[in-house]
Amino acid sequence: MAVIVWIVEGIWSAAIDAARTRTPQDADIVLLHITDPDTADAAHGAYAGLLGRQRPERDPGTRMKNLAATSAEQLLRAAADRLGRPCTQIQRVGRPEEHVLAAAEGADLLIVTRDGDRSHLGPKSLTPPSRFVLDHAPCPILLLWPEPAPDRRRGPVDLPPG
């Protein structure tokens, strides 16, 4: 059984716990982290705006790219430690939905954690990229709340109790 676990900052531990408890021991688990290049690009851009002061070795965008790679590595290592099973770690840079969908091709299960506003039930609990993944993934998806789901009476529309 091929399982893809989408690792996202701040909310990944729920996905790892689900992978550990809800997949067979011999499952082929892939931990996937995607770095959004927008932040490093913004720093590149701001630096390029400093007309006349650019020295390639001082470009903060390049430093951030390296920092992002290190941080993704550490995140994946922490996730693998928590999983405590053999697994494959994959790091990608780019649009998250594209890389997740590419990885999900041929997989038996994709584990996704709600990454939006988690204070209320409802569609805003997913960001547009994860919404896109949900709508376009070719395989079954396990969709998790990173922590116990909020009270269902606090949904976008107040539901009657019970």
Partner: peptide, 16 residues
């Protein structure tokens, strides 16, 4: 731009 931005990025990454 040059000195604070990378520190802010690293701080955010450290806090998840």
């Amino acid at each position: 731009v040059v000195l604070l931005t990378p520190v802010v990025f690293a701080t955010a990454a450290r806090l998840g």
